[in-house]
Simulated assay, not measured.
Amino acid sequence: MSDPTRPDAALADLPTISPYTVVRLNEAQFYLAPATIGEHVAAGLRTLLRESDRGPVLILGTLWLLARRRLSSGAQAPSVIRPARSHRRRVRVWPDHPAAS
């Protein structure tokens, strides 16, 4: 049996994600940057956000600045980064809020 790559594992798990789930993509460039499969992961994430019966879900990803620059420029930018911006929301947690500790 082979060990799946990060994008392969994400693609396999995306259809099984149920409501009230947090999807954490640590160093998201490893999921989004591989040319063809990264596009499939991005499309799967967009589908997850659009399908109202599968939400609410939270997709949380970390991304190094250099990786963000690479993903948001060049051929990958339109299909991977730009569509995701329409779903992006900024949430501020105040220091005295229970979730801040």
Rank of each mutant, 00 (worst) to 15 (best):
A43D: 15
S73W: 07
P34H: 07
T36S: 01
G74C: 03
G74L: 13
A35C: 00
L65P: 13
I37H: 05
D53V: 02
R68Y: 01
S72I: 09
R50D: 02
T62Q: 04
L49H: 04
R50L: 12
S52N: 12
L48N: 04
G61L: 09
P56R: 15
L65Y: 03
G55A: 13
G61H: 03
A33T: 04
S72F: 05
I59C: 03
G55N: 14
A33G: 08
I37Q: 02
A67L: 04
T62F: 00
G38H: 11
P56Q: 15
R46P: 00
S72V: 09
L45D: 10
L58M: 02
E51R: 08
E39Q: 15
R54Q: 01
I37K: 01
L66R: 12
L65E: 04
D53S: 06
A42L: 15
G55W: 00
L71V: 03
L49D: 01
S52E: 14
G61A: 01
L45M: 06
L58F: 14
A43G: 15
S72G: 12
A33E: 06
G38M: 08
L60N: 05
P56E: 13
W64C: 12
A43W: 06
R68Q: 09
E39F: 06
A33D: 09
R70I: 14
P34Q: 02
A35I: 14
G38D: 02
R50G: 12
G61V: 07
R69F: 05
G74K: 11
G44Y: 09
T47E: 05
L58C: 10
T62M: 05
G38W: 10
T36W: 13
T36F: 07
R46C: 02
E51C: 06
A75N: 11
D53C: 04
L45A: 05
L58V: 07
I59T: 06
I59R: 05
A33L: 05
L48R: 09
L49Q: 11
D53H: 04
L48Y: 04
E39H: 04
R70Y: 00
R70H: 10
V57A: 14
W64G: 11
E39S: 10
